[in-house]
Amino acid sequence: MTDPAPPPVFAPWADDGAVPLINLSGLTKRYGDVTAVNQVDLQIYEREFFSLLGPSGCGKTTIMRMLAGFEEPTGGTMTLGGQDLAGVPPNKRPVNMMFQSYALFPHLSVADNIAFGLRREGMPKSDIEGRVAEMLRLVQLTKLAKRKPHQISGGQRQRVALARSLAKAPKLLLLDEPLGALDKKLRTQTQFELMDIQENTGTTFVIVTHDQEEAMTVSSRVAVMDEGRIVQVATPAEIYEYPGSRYVAEFIGDVNLIEAKAGTTTDGDLTLHAADGAVITVQSAVPVPAGTDCALSIRPEKVAISRDRPDLDNALPGKIMDIAYLGNVTTYHVEIAGGQILKAMVANAAQRSEQAFTWYDPVWLGWNAARGVVLTR
């Protein structure tokens, strides 16, 4: 029996001939002297699950509200499916929005909550019943159709709100921190349910979140925002493995940043001179002039820790100052020369009652040149 063929790669952003569903050009929003969104250019493609990720106040929710029609841009343009959205009221846009609070009607049943928007649009009763039944099957709530919102769990209420948002078959569904009210375990489970529903419906999803793990889990691509600007747009893997700046490297996941000056480059290997005198080698696809202030970004799981000097491109001696045992992994906080703390993460593949290392042990940290990324901004 042969293995099934792998699914086709979904990457319309890499296709020069693909036409984006959403096109933002120079999008700007000011509130008096405050610029909430600053000259944003962004393309989002049909069937994407796209995340706007950043801290509170970075402008991500303002972009979503402008797409929904609740805010008018101060400058720039927005198009959806080729249609200019300027002046188009929210109820005339092929867009729906799912709010963090879910905003369910407490006096209506699950089925009636889903049907509410369809009735407002004047859809025939027989069509409404069929559409509601389809949505209930999609979110696996058919048996709970007659219950009221207070009679179901938080995760089930979230799925009702999602079904109601999808019932009108919008071209674009906007999700504003949709999982924020759920506990961690349920949030993780619901992330995968969202992905399955998005794939089954083919609707373009744009989610606003400050939760990097959520964005990395559900998204086809992520836009990382800071102070009203988009600082990097890429797939979750590209964002994590090849951050474009110190800000992105620190915002996404855990990272070690070693400040240094660029030295010479030989056959693609760049020499970095750290402030403590350490000499570090990193592969760099982009030339970096000698003397440039930069930083080495290296993820903790890519750093090996050992008692003896490792046979790797880079090796730094240090002393363990803290240990974080998390069950599946252990993170060691190691002080190197100059006082900087670097982290090394080790998978706990085998059961053991004692740590391999303990506090104040002298150790070596090591990694190969290809494991790090040099950042110049």
Rank of each mutant, 00 (worst) to 15 (best):
N314C: 04
I258V: 13
D322T: 05
G268M: 10
V288P: 01
I305R: 00
N328T: 13
A234C: 06
K261E: 15
L272Q: 06
A278C: 08
A290C: 07
V248L: 01
V248Q: 00
H333D: 01
A290Q: 13
A337V: 09
R229Y: 08
P243D: 07
V282M: 09
V282I: 14
G277I: 04
S284Y: 04
R246M: 03
V231R: 07
A274Q: 07
R309L: 04
M225F: 14
E227D: 12
D267T: 08
A262S: 15
D276F: 02
D311A: 15
V255T: 14
V224F: 04
D269Y: 06
I305P: 00
N328M: 08
A237R: 15
I230N: 05
E238M: 13
K319Q: 15
R309V: 02
P317F: 00
I230H: 04
T264A: 14
N256S: 11
D276R: 06
T235N: 13
D267A: 14
S306T: 12
G339M: 07
G253W: 03
V303D: 10
L257V: 10
P317C: 10
G253T: 09
N314H: 02
G268A: 11
N328E: 15
L257C: 11
E241L: 08
D308T: 14
P243S: 11
H333R: 11
S297L: 06
H273G: 01
F251C: 03
A234Y: 02
A278W: 05
G338A: 07
I239D: 00
A260Q: 06
V282H: 08
L270R: 12
L326V: 03
S306M: 00
S245M: 02
V282Q: 12
I258K: 00
I320Q: 07
E301H: 15
G277W: 05
A337Y: 02
D313N: 14
P289W: 08
A260V: 07
L272N: 05
H333N: 06
G327C: 05
A262T: 07
Y240G: 05
I252L: 09
G263Y: 05
R299P: 03
G263L: 08
A295W: 09
V286R: 15
P289L: 08
A260K: 03
M321W: 02
T266R: 14
T330F: 08
V286Y: 12
D311K: 11
V303F: 09
V329G: 01
Y240M: 03
V288N: 06
G291R: 13
V279P: 01
R307V: 04
P236V: 01
P287M: 08
A278M: 09
D254N: 14
E241V: 02
T265D: 12
Y242E: 14
A285I: 11
E259R: 15
D276P: 03
T266C: 11
R229T: 14
L326T: 10
P236G: 10
T265P: 06
I280N: 05
Y247I: 03
A285T: 15
